[in-house]
Nucleic acid binder design. Structure first.
Lengths: 270, 270
DNA sequence: TCAAAAGTGTTTAGATTACACCCATGT
DNA sequence: ACATGGGTGTAATCTAAACACTTTTGA
Protein backbone atom coordinates (compact mmCIF):
# COMPACT_ATOMS: atom_id res chain seq x y z
CA UNK A 1 0.00 0.00 0.00
CA UNK A 2 1.06 3.60 0.61
CA UNK A 3 4.47 3.35 2.21
CA UNK A 4 4.82 6.97 3.25
CA UNK A 5 1.41 7.51 4.86
CA UNK A 6 1.20 7.70 8.64
CA UNK A 7 -1.60 7.44 11.12
CA UNK A 8 -1.90 9.74 14.10
CA UNK A 9 -3.99 9.27 17.22
CA UNK A 10 -4.54 11.17 20.46
CA UNK A 11 -3.77 8.14 22.60
CA UNK A 12 -1.15 5.45 22.17
CA UNK A 13 -2.43 2.22 20.69
CA UNK A 14 -1.27 -1.35 20.81
CA UNK A 15 -1.17 -3.50 17.70
CA UNK A 16 -3.58 -6.41 17.38
CA UNK A 17 -2.49 -9.73 15.96
CA UNK A 18 -3.59 -13.32 15.81
CA UNK A 19 -1.55 -16.48 16.28
CA UNK A 20 -2.75 -19.89 15.33
CA UNK A 21 -1.91 -23.20 16.96
CA UNK A 22 -2.58 -25.66 14.16
CA UNK A 23 -2.96 -29.23 15.32
CA UNK A 24 -2.57 -31.93 12.70
CA UNK A 25 -3.01 -35.67 13.08
CA UNK A 26 -1.68 -38.43 10.86
CA UNK A 27 -3.28 -41.42 12.51
CA UNK A 28 -0.42 -41.91 14.92
CA UNK A 29 0.90 -38.69 16.39
CA UNK A 30 -0.44 -35.23 17.09
CA UNK A 31 1.56 -32.53 15.36
CA UNK A 32 1.80 -28.77 15.53
CA UNK A 33 2.45 -26.59 12.51
CA UNK A 34 5.29 -24.09 12.84
CA UNK A 35 6.88 -21.63 10.47
CA UNK A 36 10.45 -20.49 10.30
CA UNK A 37 10.47 -16.73 10.57
CA UNK A 38 11.86 -15.01 7.47
CA UNK A 39 12.05 -11.55 9.00
CA UNK A 40 13.20 -9.90 12.21
CA UNK A 41 12.62 -10.16 15.11
CA UNK A 42 13.50 -13.77 15.82
CA UNK A 43 14.45 -14.24 12.16
CA UNK A 44 15.34 -17.88 11.51
CA UNK A 45 13.53 -19.08 14.61
CA UNK A 46 10.44 -21.24 14.68
CA UNK A 47 7.13 -19.62 15.56
CA UNK A 48 3.40 -19.99 15.26
CA UNK A 49 1.76 -18.79 12.07
CA UNK A 50 0.00 -15.47 12.61
CA UNK A 51 0.24 -11.75 12.04
CA UNK A 52 -1.27 -8.32 12.36
CA UNK A 53 -4.93 -7.58 11.90
CA UNK A 54 -5.88 -5.27 9.03
CA UNK A 55 -8.47 -2.54 9.42
CA UNK A 56 -10.99 -4.13 7.11
CA UNK A 57 -11.07 -7.61 8.62
CA UNK A 58 -12.24 -9.18 11.85
CA UNK A 59 -9.77 -11.06 14.00
CA UNK A 60 -11.17 -14.36 12.72
CA UNK A 61 -10.63 -13.27 9.14
CA UNK A 62 -7.14 -12.20 10.10
CA UNK A 63 -6.33 -15.63 11.52
CA UNK A 64 -7.68 -17.38 8.45
CA UNK A 65 -5.76 -15.11 6.10
CA UNK A 66 -2.44 -15.39 7.92
CA UNK A 67 -2.79 -19.14 8.02
CA UNK A 68 -3.40 -19.27 4.30
CA UNK A 69 -0.61 -16.84 3.42
CA UNK A 70 2.05 -18.37 5.62
CA UNK A 71 1.26 -22.05 5.34
CA UNK A 72 -1.31 -22.49 2.55
CA UNK A 73 -3.68 -24.17 5.00
CA UNK A 74 -7.28 -23.13 4.34
CA UNK A 75 -10.75 -24.24 5.30
CA UNK A 76 -9.67 -25.52 8.70
CA UNK A 77 -11.81 -25.62 11.82
CA UNK A 78 -10.78 -22.48 13.69
CA UNK A 79 -11.62 -21.39 17.19
CA UNK A 80 -10.44 -18.50 19.31
CA UNK A 81 -9.23 -19.58 22.75
CA UNK A 82 -7.24 -16.90 24.56
CA UNK A 83 -5.73 -13.43 24.45
CA UNK A 84 -2.11 -12.70 25.33
CA UNK A 85 -1.32 -9.16 26.30
CA UNK A 86 1.82 -9.13 28.43
CA UNK A 87 3.45 -5.77 28.02
CA UNK A 88 6.82 -7.01 26.83
CA UNK A 89 5.76 -10.07 24.88
CA UNK A 90 6.95 -8.56 21.60
CA UNK A 91 10.23 -6.62 21.23
CA UNK A 92 8.71 -4.45 18.49
CA UNK A 93 6.36 -2.80 20.94
CA UNK A 94 2.97 -3.38 22.40
CA UNK A 95 1.30 -6.27 20.59
CA UNK A 96 -1.83 -7.98 21.85
CA UNK A 97 -2.47 -11.30 20.20
CA UNK A 98 -5.63 -13.35 19.95
CA UNK A 99 -4.79 -17.04 19.96
CA UNK A 100 -6.65 -19.50 17.78
CA UNK A 101 -6.82 -23.23 17.61
CA UNK A 102 -7.01 -24.94 14.23
CA UNK A 103 -7.72 -28.63 13.79
CA UNK A 104 -6.87 -30.44 10.57
CA UNK A 105 -5.95 -33.81 9.21
CA UNK A 106 -2.31 -33.74 8.21
CA UNK A 107 -3.17 -35.68 5.07
CA UNK A 108 -5.34 -32.85 3.77
CA UNK A 109 -2.55 -30.37 3.28
CA UNK A 110 0.63 -29.92 1.34
CA UNK A 111 2.46 -27.23 3.23
CA UNK A 112 3.77 -24.33 1.23
CA UNK A 113 5.63 -21.64 3.09
CA UNK A 114 4.89 -18.09 2.01
CA UNK A 115 4.86 -14.45 2.99
CA UNK A 116 6.93 -13.86 6.15
CA UNK A 117 7.58 -17.56 6.52
CA UNK A 118 10.64 -19.14 4.95
CA UNK A 119 9.57 -22.67 5.90
CA UNK A 120 6.45 -24.34 7.25
CA UNK A 121 6.74 -27.71 8.95
CA UNK A 122 4.94 -30.14 11.21
CA UNK A 123 6.46 -31.04 14.57
CA UNK A 124 5.35 -33.78 16.92
CA UNK A 125 3.41 -31.94 19.59
CA UNK A 126 5.81 -32.77 22.40
CA UNK A 127 9.06 -32.40 20.49
CA UNK A 128 9.10 -28.75 19.57
CA UNK A 129 12.16 -26.62 18.79
CA UNK A 130 12.83 -23.40 20.72
CA UNK A 131 10.15 -20.88 19.83
CA UNK A 132 9.98 -17.14 19.22
CA UNK A 133 8.04 -14.72 21.45
CA UNK A 134 5.79 -16.34 24.09
CA UNK A 135 4.66 -18.97 21.64
CA UNK A 136 5.55 -21.78 23.99
CA UNK A 137 3.07 -20.43 26.48
CA UNK A 138 0.44 -20.03 23.78
CA UNK A 139 0.88 -23.62 22.68
CA UNK A 140 0.58 -24.84 26.25
CA UNK A 141 -2.66 -22.98 26.72
CA UNK A 142 -3.84 -24.30 23.38
CA UNK A 143 -3.22 -27.86 24.49
CA UNK A 144 -5.08 -27.23 27.73
CA UNK A 145 -7.96 -25.78 25.80
CA UNK A 146 -8.05 -28.73 23.44
CA UNK A 147 -8.23 -31.08 26.41
CA UNK A 148 -11.15 -29.12 27.84
CA UNK A 149 -12.87 -28.99 24.51
CA UNK A 150 -12.66 -32.69 23.85
CA UNK A 151 -14.76 -33.40 26.91
CA UNK A 152 -17.54 -31.14 25.73
CA UNK A 153 -17.67 -31.30 21.96
CA UNK A 154 -16.72 -33.85 19.34
CA UNK A 155 -14.07 -31.52 17.90
CA UNK A 156 -11.44 -34.22 17.60
CA UNK A 157 -13.26 -35.49 14.57
CA UNK A 158 -11.81 -32.53 12.68
CA UNK A 159 -8.34 -33.95 13.20
CA UNK A 160 -9.14 -37.16 11.40
CA UNK A 161 -8.82 -37.97 7.75
CA UNK A 162 -11.97 -38.30 5.65
CA UNK A 163 -11.88 -42.00 6.40
CA UNK A 164 -10.28 -43.38 9.53
CA UNK A 165 -10.22 -46.43 11.75
CA UNK A 166 -11.43 -46.49 15.32
CA UNK A 167 -7.91 -47.36 16.46
CA UNK A 168 -6.68 -44.10 14.96
CA UNK A 169 -9.36 -42.20 16.80
CA UNK A 170 -8.51 -43.95 20.04
CA UNK A 171 -4.81 -43.13 19.73
CA UNK A 172 -5.76 -39.51 19.14
CA UNK A 173 -8.07 -39.25 22.12
CA UNK A 174 -5.49 -40.93 24.30
CA UNK A 175 -2.71 -38.55 23.37
CA UNK A 176 -4.93 -35.56 24.00
CA UNK A 177 -6.40 -36.66 27.31
CA UNK A 178 -3.31 -38.49 28.52
CA UNK A 179 -5.41 -41.44 29.61
CA UNK A 180 -5.79 -44.96 28.24
CA UNK A 181 -9.03 -46.71 27.48
CA UNK A 182 -10.07 -50.29 26.93
CA UNK A 183 -9.80 -50.94 23.22
CA UNK A 184 -12.95 -53.02 23.06
CA UNK A 185 -15.20 -50.71 25.03
CA UNK A 186 -13.92 -47.74 23.11
CA UNK A 187 -14.78 -49.42 19.89
CA UNK A 188 -18.29 -50.39 20.82
CA UNK A 189 -19.02 -46.99 22.18
CA UNK A 190 -18.13 -45.31 18.95
CA UNK A 191 -19.64 -47.80 16.59
CA UNK A 192 -22.94 -47.46 18.40
CA UNK A 193 -22.63 -43.72 18.76
CA UNK A 194 -24.47 -42.75 15.65
CA UNK A 195 -21.68 -40.30 14.87
CA UNK A 196 -19.93 -42.49 12.31
CA UNK A 197 -20.80 -44.19 9.05
CA UNK A 198 -18.80 -47.26 7.95
CA UNK A 199 -17.11 -46.69 4.64
CA UNK A 200 -14.90 -49.50 3.37
CA UNK A 201 -11.92 -51.14 5.01
CA UNK A 202 -8.23 -50.63 5.41
CA UNK A 203 -5.91 -52.08 2.78
CA UNK A 204 -2.67 -53.85 3.78
CA UNK A 205 -1.97 -53.98 7.54
CA UNK A 206 -0.34 -57.26 8.49
CA UNK A 207 -3.47 -58.32 10.33
CA UNK A 208 -7.21 -58.17 10.03
CA UNK A 209 -8.05 -54.94 8.19
CA UNK A 210 -10.03 -52.42 10.17
CA UNK A 211 -13.32 -50.95 9.05
CA UNK A 212 -12.94 -47.33 8.05
CA UNK A 213 -15.49 -44.75 9.05
CA UNK A 214 -16.44 -41.28 8.02
CA UNK A 215 -18.16 -38.71 10.21
CA UNK A 216 -21.86 -38.29 9.54
CA UNK A 217 -22.04 -34.84 7.96
CA UNK A 218 -24.97 -33.83 10.17
CA UNK A 219 -22.77 -34.06 13.22
CA UNK A 220 -21.10 -30.76 12.77
CA UNK A 221 -22.27 -27.47 11.59
CA UNK A 222 -19.32 -25.19 11.13
CA UNK A 223 -21.36 -22.22 9.98
CA UNK A 224 -20.86 -20.77 13.43
CA UNK A 225 -17.54 -22.51 13.99
CA UNK A 226 -19.48 -24.53 16.47
CA UNK A 227 -20.99 -27.95 16.77
CA UNK A 228 -24.37 -29.43 17.03
CA UNK A 229 -26.41 -26.30 16.96
CA UNK A 230 -28.04 -26.74 13.61
CA UNK A 231 -31.55 -28.03 13.24
CA UNK A 232 -30.22 -30.82 11.09
CA UNK A 233 -27.91 -32.31 13.64
CA UNK A 234 -29.47 -35.69 14.17
CA UNK A 235 -27.07 -36.60 16.89
CA UNK A 236 -28.26 -33.68 18.93
CA UNK A 237 -31.95 -34.12 18.77
CA UNK A 238 -33.31 -35.88 21.82
CA UNK A 239 -35.88 -37.77 19.76
CA UNK A 240 -35.41 -37.88 16.00
CA UNK A 241 -39.08 -38.88 15.72
CA UNK A 242 -38.82 -40.31 12.20
CA UNK A 243 -36.78 -43.28 11.05
CA UNK A 244 -33.23 -43.50 12.23
CA UNK A 245 -30.14 -43.92 10.06
CA UNK A 246 -28.39 -47.28 9.60
CA UNK A 247 -27.46 -47.69 13.22
CA UNK A 248 -31.00 -48.11 14.45
CA UNK A 249 -30.96 -47.43 18.14
CA UNK A 250 -33.60 -49.96 19.07
CA UNK A 251 -32.09 -52.81 17.08
CA UNK A 252 -28.88 -52.78 19.01
CA UNK A 253 -29.11 -55.98 20.99
CA UNK A 254 -31.97 -54.41 22.86
CA UNK A 255 -29.53 -52.20 24.79
CA UNK A 256 -30.37 -48.56 25.06
CA UNK A 257 -27.84 -45.84 24.52
CA UNK A 258 -26.85 -43.33 27.15
CA UNK A 259 -28.14 -39.83 26.80
CA UNK A 260 -24.62 -38.63 26.10
CA UNK A 261 -24.38 -41.13 23.31
CA UNK A 262 -27.67 -40.27 21.78
CA UNK A 263 -26.79 -36.63 21.83
CA UNK A 264 -23.38 -37.22 20.35
CA UNK A 265 -21.76 -35.04 22.93
CA UNK A 266 -19.48 -35.71 25.82
CA UNK A 267 -17.89 -38.34 23.86
CA UNK A 268 -14.39 -38.40 24.98
CA UNK A 269 -14.81 -37.86 28.66
CA UNK A 270 -14.04 -41.39 29.69
CA UNK B 1 -1.89 13.39 31.13
CA UNK B 2 -0.55 15.44 28.23
CA UNK B 3 -3.64 16.55 26.37
CA UNK B 4 -1.87 17.83 23.26
CA UNK B 5 0.48 14.90 22.63
CA UNK B 6 -0.21 12.68 19.66
CA UNK B 7 0.99 9.25 18.61
CA UNK B 8 1.92 8.43 15.06
CA UNK B 9 2.31 5.02 13.46
CA UNK B 10 3.13 3.70 10.00
CA UNK B 11 0.05 1.48 9.92
CA UNK B 12 -3.47 2.16 11.12
CA UNK B 13 -4.29 0.61 14.48
CA UNK B 14 -7.47 -0.44 16.17
CA UNK B 15 -8.15 0.39 19.80
CA UNK B 16 -8.25 -2.41 22.35
CA UNK B 17 -10.83 -2.47 25.10
CA UNK B 18 -12.33 -4.85 27.59
CA UNK B 19 -15.96 -5.33 28.54
CA UNK B 20 -17.09 -7.22 31.57
CA UNK B 21 -20.27 -9.22 32.04
CA UNK B 22 -20.65 -9.22 35.81
CA UNK B 23 -23.00 -11.89 37.10
CA UNK B 24 -24.34 -11.43 40.61
CA UNK B 25 -26.55 -13.78 42.60
CA UNK B 26 -28.70 -12.96 45.60
CA UNK B 27 -29.93 -16.43 46.48
CA UNK B 28 -32.92 -16.18 44.19
CA UNK B 29 -32.16 -14.59 40.86
CA UNK B 30 -29.16 -14.19 38.62
CA UNK B 31 -28.38 -10.54 37.88
CA UNK B 32 -26.15 -8.66 35.48
CA UNK B 33 -24.41 -5.43 36.37
CA UNK B 34 -24.90 -2.55 33.96
CA UNK B 35 -23.82 1.05 33.93
CA UNK B 36 -25.58 4.05 32.49
CA UNK B 37 -23.22 5.73 30.08
CA UNK B 38 -22.29 9.26 31.13
CA UNK B 39 -20.54 10.18 27.88
CA UNK B 40 -21.12 9.89 24.16
CA UNK B 41 -21.65 7.73 22.22
CA UNK B 42 -24.81 6.13 23.55
CA UNK B 43 -24.84 8.63 26.41
CA UNK B 44 -27.68 7.83 28.80
CA UNK B 45 -27.98 4.26 27.58
CA UNK B 46 -27.20 1.14 29.58
CA UNK B 47 -24.02 -0.74 28.78
CA UNK B 48 -21.51 -3.19 30.14
CA UNK B 49 -18.73 -1.85 32.32
CA UNK B 50 -15.45 -1.69 30.41
CA UNK B 51 -13.07 0.62 28.62
CA UNK B 52 -9.84 1.10 26.75
CA UNK B 53 -6.63 -0.67 27.60
CA UNK B 54 -3.72 1.48 28.72
CA UNK B 55 -0.19 0.93 27.50
CA UNK B 56 1.17 -0.16 30.83
CA UNK B 57 -1.42 -2.79 31.70
CA UNK B 58 -2.46 -6.20 30.42
CA UNK B 59 -5.99 -6.75 29.22
CA UNK B 60 -6.82 -8.53 32.50
CA UNK B 61 -5.56 -5.56 34.49
CA UNK B 62 -7.61 -3.31 32.25
CA UNK B 63 -10.78 -5.27 32.93
CA UNK B 64 -10.15 -5.21 36.66
CA UNK B 65 -9.43 -1.49 36.67
CA UNK B 66 -12.46 -0.52 34.61
CA UNK B 67 -14.68 -2.63 36.80
CA UNK B 68 -13.36 -0.94 39.90
CA UNK B 69 -13.53 2.59 38.46
CA UNK B 70 -16.99 2.31 37.01
CA UNK B 71 -18.77 0.15 39.56
CA UNK B 72 -16.48 -0.14 42.60
CA UNK B 73 -16.50 -3.93 42.29
CA UNK B 74 -13.09 -5.39 43.09
CA UNK B 75 -11.59 -8.75 43.86
CA UNK B 76 -14.07 -10.65 41.73
CA UNK B 77 -13.43 -13.91 39.90
CA UNK B 78 -12.61 -12.79 36.36
CA UNK B 79 -12.22 -14.84 33.22
CA UNK B 80 -11.73 -13.88 29.62
CA UNK B 81 -14.19 -15.61 27.29
CA UNK B 82 -14.34 -14.05 23.84
CA UNK B 83 -13.12 -11.32 21.50
CA UNK B 84 -15.45 -9.12 19.48
CA UNK B 85 -13.94 -7.45 16.47
CA UNK B 86 -16.72 -6.63 14.02
CA UNK B 87 -15.57 -3.70 11.94
CA UNK B 88 -18.48 -1.39 12.75
CA UNK B 89 -19.22 -2.42 16.31
CA UNK B 90 -18.23 0.99 17.68
CA UNK B 91 -19.22 4.29 16.00
CA UNK B 92 -16.02 5.94 17.23
CA UNK B 93 -13.90 3.78 14.96
CA UNK B 94 -12.24 0.43 15.02
CA UNK B 95 -12.45 -1.02 18.54
CA UNK B 96 -11.66 -4.63 19.35
CA UNK B 97 -12.95 -5.70 22.73
CA UNK B 98 -11.96 -8.60 24.91
CA UNK B 99 -14.98 -9.85 26.83
CA UNK B 100 -14.68 -11.01 30.43
CA UNK B 101 -16.96 -12.84 32.78
CA UNK B 102 -17.03 -11.82 36.44
CA UNK B 103 -18.80 -13.84 39.11
CA UNK B 104 -19.74 -12.31 42.45
CA UNK B 105 -22.22 -12.58 45.25
CA UNK B 106 -24.50 -9.57 45.09
CA UNK B 107 -24.33 -9.25 48.85
CA UNK B 108 -20.60 -8.53 48.73
CA UNK B 109 -20.87 -5.21 46.97
CA UNK B 110 -22.35 -1.78 47.41
CA UNK B 111 -22.42 -0.36 43.93
CA UNK B 112 -20.95 3.05 43.44
CA UNK B 113 -21.01 4.50 39.96
CA UNK B 114 -17.89 6.38 38.92
CA UNK B 115 -15.76 7.57 36.03
CA UNK B 116 -17.66 7.39 32.74
CA UNK B 117 -20.64 5.80 34.43
CA UNK B 118 -23.43 7.94 35.81
CA UNK B 119 -25.21 4.99 37.43
CA UNK B 120 -24.43 1.34 38.12
CA UNK B 121 -27.26 -1.10 38.73
CA UNK B 122 -28.15 -4.77 38.86
CA UNK B 123 -30.70 -6.16 36.39
CA UNK B 124 -32.30 -9.58 36.46
CA UNK B 125 -30.40 -11.50 33.79
CA UNK B 126 -33.42 -11.97 31.51
CA UNK B 127 -34.98 -8.54 31.97
CA UNK B 128 -32.40 -6.21 30.53
CA UNK B 129 -32.98 -2.73 29.11
CA UNK B 130 -31.87 -1.85 25.56
CA UNK B 131 -28.10 -1.85 25.47
CA UNK B 132 -25.37 0.20 23.78
CA UNK B 133 -23.01 -1.18 21.13
CA UNK B 134 -23.15 -4.95 20.60
CA UNK B 135 -23.43 -5.55 24.31
CA UNK B 136 -26.50 -7.71 23.91
CA UNK B 137 -24.50 -10.12 21.81
CA UNK B 138 -21.66 -10.08 24.32
CA UNK B 139 -24.02 -10.91 27.17
CA UNK B 140 -25.53 -13.77 25.19
CA UNK B 141 -22.13 -15.24 24.54
CA UNK B 142 -21.28 -14.73 28.19
CA UNK B 143 -24.31 -16.71 29.27
CA UNK B 144 -23.44 -19.48 26.85
CA UNK B 145 -19.94 -19.54 28.21
CA UNK B 146 -21.17 -19.68 31.79
CA UNK B 147 -23.35 -22.65 30.88
CA UNK B 148 -20.38 -24.45 29.35
CA UNK B 149 -18.18 -23.58 32.27
CA UNK B 150 -20.55 -24.87 34.89
CA UNK B 151 -20.33 -28.36 33.44
CA UNK B 152 -16.58 -28.43 33.75
CA UNK B 153 -15.58 -26.40 36.78
CA UNK B 154 -17.23 -25.50 40.07
CA UNK B 155 -17.22 -21.81 39.16
CA UNK B 156 -20.77 -21.23 40.33
CA UNK B 157 -19.48 -21.29 43.86
CA UNK B 158 -18.11 -17.80 43.24
CA UNK B 159 -21.65 -16.51 42.82
CA UNK B 160 -22.68 -17.58 46.28
CA UNK B 161 -22.46 -15.69 49.51
CA UNK B 162 -19.87 -16.73 52.09
CA UNK B 163 -22.54 -18.91 53.65
CA UNK B 164 -25.40 -20.34 51.63
CA UNK B 165 -28.01 -23.06 51.65
CA UNK B 166 -28.13 -25.92 49.21
CA UNK B 167 -31.52 -24.69 47.98
CA UNK B 168 -29.89 -21.41 46.96
CA UNK B 169 -27.23 -23.29 45.09
CA UNK B 170 -29.82 -25.44 43.37
CA UNK B 171 -31.84 -22.42 42.24
CA UNK B 172 -28.67 -20.94 40.83
CA UNK B 173 -27.63 -24.04 38.92
CA UNK B 174 -31.15 -24.41 37.58
CA UNK B 175 -31.33 -20.88 36.24
CA UNK B 176 -27.97 -21.25 34.55
CA UNK B 177 -28.52 -24.64 32.97
CA UNK B 178 -32.22 -24.17 32.35
CA UNK B 179 -32.94 -27.62 33.73
CA UNK B 180 -34.61 -28.81 36.92
CA UNK B 181 -33.24 -31.36 39.30
CA UNK B 182 -34.68 -33.49 42.05
CA UNK B 183 -34.27 -31.52 45.24
CA UNK B 184 -33.35 -34.56 47.29
CA UNK B 185 -30.79 -36.03 44.93
CA UNK B 186 -29.25 -32.62 44.44
CA UNK B 187 -28.88 -32.21 48.13
CA UNK B 188 -27.27 -35.54 48.79
CA UNK B 189 -24.90 -35.10 45.93
CA UNK B 190 -23.59 -31.85 47.30
CA UNK B 191 -23.52 -32.74 50.93
CA UNK B 192 -21.42 -35.78 50.12
CA UNK B 193 -19.30 -33.93 47.62
CA UNK B 194 -16.53 -32.89 49.91
CA UNK B 195 -16.71 -29.40 48.45
CA UNK B 196 -18.70 -27.86 51.28
CA UNK B 197 -18.31 -27.42 54.98
CA UNK B 198 -21.44 -26.98 57.17
CA UNK B 199 -21.39 -23.69 58.98
CA UNK B 200 -24.47 -22.93 61.09
CA UNK B 201 -28.08 -22.73 60.03
CA UNK B 202 -30.49 -20.25 58.54
CA UNK B 203 -32.38 -17.94 60.90
CA UNK B 204 -36.13 -17.27 60.37
CA UNK B 205 -37.70 -19.04 57.37
CA UNK B 206 -41.25 -20.14 58.12
CA UNK B 207 -40.18 -23.75 58.03
CA UNK B 208 -37.34 -25.99 59.06
CA UNK B 209 -34.17 -23.89 58.82
CA UNK B 210 -31.63 -25.06 56.28
CA UNK B 211 -28.04 -25.83 57.11
CA UNK B 212 -25.70 -23.22 55.72
CA UNK B 213 -22.46 -24.19 54.06
CA UNK B 214 -19.25 -22.51 53.06
CA UNK B 215 -16.95 -23.64 50.29
CA UNK B 216 -13.86 -25.50 51.45
CA UNK B 217 -11.07 -23.03 50.70
CA UNK B 218 -8.93 -25.73 49.11
CA UNK B 219 -11.46 -26.11 46.34
CA UNK B 220 -10.39 -23.14 44.36
CA UNK B 221 -7.10 -21.63 43.60
CA UNK B 222 -7.60 -18.31 41.90
CA UNK B 223 -3.94 -17.52 41.60
CA UNK B 224 -4.23 -18.45 37.94
CA UNK B 225 -7.87 -17.49 37.69
CA UNK B 226 -8.41 -21.18 37.48
CA UNK B 227 -9.67 -24.01 39.60
CA UNK B 228 -8.33 -27.11 41.11
CA UNK B 229 -4.81 -26.88 39.87
CA UNK B 230 -3.11 -26.20 43.16
CA UNK B 231 -1.29 -28.90 45.04
CA UNK B 232 -3.54 -28.22 47.98
CA UNK B 233 -6.81 -28.90 46.31
CA UNK B 234 -8.05 -31.87 48.24
CA UNK B 235 -11.06 -32.32 46.05
CA UNK B 236 -8.83 -32.85 43.08
CA UNK B 237 -6.42 -35.38 44.42
CA UNK B 238 -7.40 -38.91 43.47
CA UNK B 239 -6.21 -40.27 46.80
CA UNK B 240 -5.67 -37.80 49.62
CA UNK B 241 -3.60 -40.51 51.36
CA UNK B 242 -3.90 -39.07 54.85
CA UNK B 243 -7.04 -38.61 56.90
CA UNK B 244 -10.02 -37.10 55.21
CA UNK B 245 -11.97 -34.06 56.33
CA UNK B 246 -15.30 -34.29 58.15
CA UNK B 247 -17.15 -35.95 55.34
CA UNK B 248 -15.25 -39.22 55.52
CA UNK B 249 -15.77 -40.97 52.22
CA UNK B 250 -15.76 -44.49 53.58
CA UNK B 251 -18.20 -43.82 56.38
CA UNK B 252 -21.00 -42.80 54.09
CA UNK B 253 -23.42 -45.66 54.43
CA UNK B 254 -20.85 -47.83 52.71
CA UNK B 255 -21.65 -46.24 49.37
CA UNK B 256 -18.77 -45.16 47.25
CA UNK B 257 -18.66 -41.80 45.55
CA UNK B 258 -18.41 -41.36 41.82
CA UNK B 259 -15.08 -40.34 40.40
CA UNK B 260 -16.55 -36.99 39.46
CA UNK B 261 -17.61 -36.49 43.03
CA UNK B 262 -14.30 -37.45 44.49
CA UNK B 263 -12.54 -35.12 42.16
CA UNK B 264 -14.92 -32.30 42.86
CA UNK B 265 -15.36 -31.59 39.20
CA UNK B 266 -18.19 -32.04 36.77
CA UNK B 267 -20.50 -31.12 39.43
CA UNK B 268 -23.32 -29.46 37.77
CA UNK B 269 -23.66 -31.57 34.71
CA UNK B 270 -26.81 -33.34 35.77
C1' DT C 1 -51.69 -29.51 64.51
C1' DC C 2 -50.87 -28.09 60.05
C1' DA C 3 -48.07 -26.23 56.23
C1' DA C 4 -43.65 -25.89 54.32
C1' DA C 5 -39.25 -26.78 53.42
C1' DA C 6 -35.08 -29.71 55.03
C1' DG C 7 -33.09 -33.90 54.98
C1' DT C 8 -32.65 -39.55 54.84
C1' DG C 9 -33.23 -44.22 52.93
C1' DT C 10 -34.20 -47.46 49.50
C1' DT C 11 -35.34 -49.30 45.08
C1' DT C 12 -34.51 -49.82 40.39
C1' DA C 13 -33.25 -48.84 35.58
C1' DG C 14 -29.55 -48.42 33.08
C1' DA C 15 -24.62 -47.26 32.06
C1' DT C 16 -19.79 -48.56 32.47
C1' DT C 17 -16.17 -51.78 33.22
C1' DA C 18 -13.58 -55.89 32.80
C1' DC C 19 -12.63 -59.57 30.37
C1' DA C 20 -13.34 -64.02 27.70
C1' DC C 21 -13.82 -65.04 23.27
C1' DC C 22 -14.15 -65.22 18.07
C1' DC C 23 -12.67 -63.27 13.37
C1' DA C 24 -9.88 -61.95 9.32
C1' DT C 25 -5.69 -61.15 7.44
C1' DG C 26 -0.39 -61.58 6.22
C1' DT C 27 3.57 -64.36 6.68
C1' DA D 1 -0.74 -72.56 11.64
C1' DC D 2 0.35 -68.69 14.18
C1' DA D 3 0.90 -63.82 15.20
C1' DT D 4 -1.54 -59.55 15.06
C1' DG D 5 -4.86 -56.52 15.67
C1' DG D 6 -10.23 -56.07 14.69
C1' DG D 7 -14.53 -56.89 16.59
C1' DT D 8 -18.65 -59.19 19.74
C1' DG D 9 -21.00 -60.92 24.03
C1' DT D 10 -21.89 -60.83 28.72
C1' DA D 11 -21.62 -60.68 33.86
C1' DA D 12 -20.57 -57.78 37.56
C1' DT D 13 -20.20 -53.34 39.29
C1' DC D 14 -21.39 -48.75 39.76
C1' DT D 15 -24.33 -44.56 39.15
C1' DA D 16 -28.18 -41.79 38.98
C1' DA D 17 -33.21 -41.18 39.01
C1' DA D 18 -37.48 -41.72 41.35
C1' DC D 19 -39.89 -41.42 45.22
C1' DA D 20 -41.74 -42.65 50.05
C1' DC D 21 -40.74 -41.14 54.28
C1' DT D 22 -39.07 -38.55 58.55
C1' DT D 23 -37.62 -34.08 60.73
C1' DT D 24 -37.77 -29.35 62.20
C1' DT D 25 -39.36 -25.14 62.26
C1' DG D 26 -43.27 -21.02 62.31
C1' DA D 27 -47.97 -19.91 62.51
Amino acid sequence: MNTSATYTYKHPRATIASDIVVFGYDGYQLHILLIERGVEPYKGMWALPGGFMLMDETIEECARRELREETSVSGAYLRQFDVFSDIHRDPRGRVVTVAFLALVSKADYHLLAGDDASRAEWFVHDELPPLAFDHNKIINEGLKHLRDLIATRPVVLHLLDKRFSIAELQRLVETITGEEYDRRNFQRRLIHSNLLRPEGTESDSGSRPATLYSVRPEVYDDSDDDFCESQNCMSCKPEPKGSLPDNDIESMQGKRLSRAMREGLNFFKF
